[in-house]
C-alpha cells in the first residue's frame, strides 16, 4: 500500500518535471528517438540478414557430376561412397535425361536449345545433389566427394555466398558500433536533463532529506522521469517499425532484389522489434537518470 502511494507520488513528480523542463526534455526525447530509429533499423536489418543467410545455408547443395563414361555399376559405387561420408544428410541422383527435362520445364529458352540435343550430344552429366549436415564443413565434404573415382567435377556455391555473409557481418558490426556510440551520447544527454531537474529541485530535495525521506523516495521520481523520456522517445521509432517495415515488405513483395533474399514476414516480427525498442528506450532512460542521480544527489 505504502509503496504504491510513494510510487504514485513519484510518477506525479516525474511527469510534472518533464512538462516543466519541456525544452530540455524534448532535446532528450529527440536524441532517444534518433538513437532508437537507428537501433530499430539495425535490429530489423540484422534479423533479416540472419534469416536469409540461414535460408541460403540450408539450401547449400554440393553438386557432383559423374564422368560420362561411368556405367551403372560405377554409379552404384559412387552412391555407396557418398553414403559413407558422415556429413552427408541427404542426396538425390539425377540422370542427364532427368536434368534435361527439369531444365526444359524451367525455361522456354532452355527448352528450345535442349530439344535439339540427343543424349549423346548432350553436355549435361548425371549428377548427385548432396545436402550436408554441417555447412561449416561444406568444403571438406566437397573435397572428399571430389576424390571419389569417376567423379568429374564437384561444385558448391560457397564462394559468392561466403563473401556476402562476410560483408553482411561487417555491416552488422559497424551498425552495432554506431548504435553503442549513439546510446552513450543519449545517456549523456539524459544525465544532463536529469541534472537540471535535480538542481531545480535542490531545495525540495534538501528538505526531503531533513524530514526523513529515504534515499529510495528521493531517487525514484528522477529515475521514473528518465524512464518517461525513454518511453516518449520510443514512440516515433515504434511507429516507423510498425508502418515502415510493413510498407517496405509490401513494396518489395517480401523479396529483396532476388528470390534468394527473403524478408521476414511483418507479423509478429514488428511487434517483437517494437517491444525491444521500447524496452531499450526505457532502459537507456533509466541508466541515464540513475547515473545522474548517483553523481549529483549523493544521498
Amino acid at each position: 500500500m505504502k509503496l504504491f502511494r510513494m510510487l504514485g507520488r513519484s510518477i506525479r513528480d516525474a511527469v510534472k518535471s518533464v512538462v516543466r523542463n519541456f525544452s530540455l526534455s524534448l532535446a532528450s526525447i529527440s536524441c532517444i528517438t534518433i538513437t532508437l530509429i537507428i537501433v530499430a533499423v539495425a535490429i530489423i536489418a540484422s534479423y533479416n540478414v540472419q534469416n536469409f543467410t540461414k535460408e541460403i545455408e540450408r539450401d547449400m547443395t554440393i553438386v557432383a557430376f559423374v564422368d560420362n563414361d561411368a556405367d551403372e555399376e560405377d554409379v552404384k559405387e559412387i552412391e555407396s561412397d557418398i553414403k559413407s561420408i558422415s556429413n552427408v544428410s541427404k542426396y538425390t541422383y539425377q540422370t542427364k535425361t532427368e536434368v534435361k527435362e527439369k531444365m526444359q520445364a524451367e525455361s522456354d529458352v532452355f527448352n528450345t536449345v535442349l530439344k535439339n540435343w540427343s543424349d549423346e550430344e548432350s553436355p549435361l552429366k548425371d549428377t548427385f545433389q548432396i545436402k550436408v549436415k554441417d555447412v561449416e564443413k561444406l568444403k571438406q565434404t566437397a573435397m572428399r566427394i571430389q576424390s571419389i573415382d569417376k567423379i568429374a567435377v564437384v561444385r558448391y556455391g560457397s564462394g559468392m555466398v561466403d563473401k556476402m555473409i562476410a560483408a553482411f557481418n561487417q555491416v552488422e558490426k559497424i551498425t552495432y558500433g554506431i548504435v553503442i556510440a549513439l546510446i552513450v551520447v543519449t545517456v549523456f544527454l539524459i544525465v544532463n536533463t536529469i541534472k537540471l531537474t535535480i538542481s531545480a529541485r535542490r531545495r525540495e530535495i534538501s528538505i526531503m532529506r531533513l524530514v526523513g525521506a529515504s534515499n529510495f523516495t528521493i531517487k525514484t521520481p528522477f529515475i521514473i522521469e528518465g524512464m518517461i523520456l525513454g518511453l516518449f522517445g520510443s514512440i516515433v521509432p515504434v511507429l516507423i517499425t510498425m508502418y515502415g517495415y510493413t510498407a517496405f515488405y509490401n513494396h518489395f513483395d517480401g523479396y529483396l532484389y532476388s528470390q534468394l533474399i527473403q524478408l521476414i514476414k511483418p507479423e509478429p516480427f514488428i511487434y517483437q522489434v517494437s517491444l525491444a525498442v521500447i524496452v531499450i528506450g526505457i532502459i537507456v532512460g533509466m541508466i541515464g537518470s540513475a547515473s545522474a542521480v548517483r553523481k549529483y544527489l549523493k544521498v
Binding site: 502511494r5 507520488r9 528538505i207 531533513l210 524530514v211 523516495t217
Partner: peptide, 30 residues
C-alpha cells in the same frame, strides 16, 4: 524521522501553500 528541525531561514517551498508545505513532510515518508 525521530526529530524535527527548524532553521533560521525557514526553508519552505515557495510554490506550495502552507498546507502543502506541512503535508510534504508526511508525504515524503509515505
Amino acid at each position: 524521522r525521530k526529530l524535527g528541525i527548524v532553521f533560521q531561514d525557514y526553508r519552505l517551498l515557495p510554490k506550495q501553500t502552507v498546507y502543502e508545505n506541512v503535508a510534504f513532510a508526511l508525504e515524503c515518508i509515505g
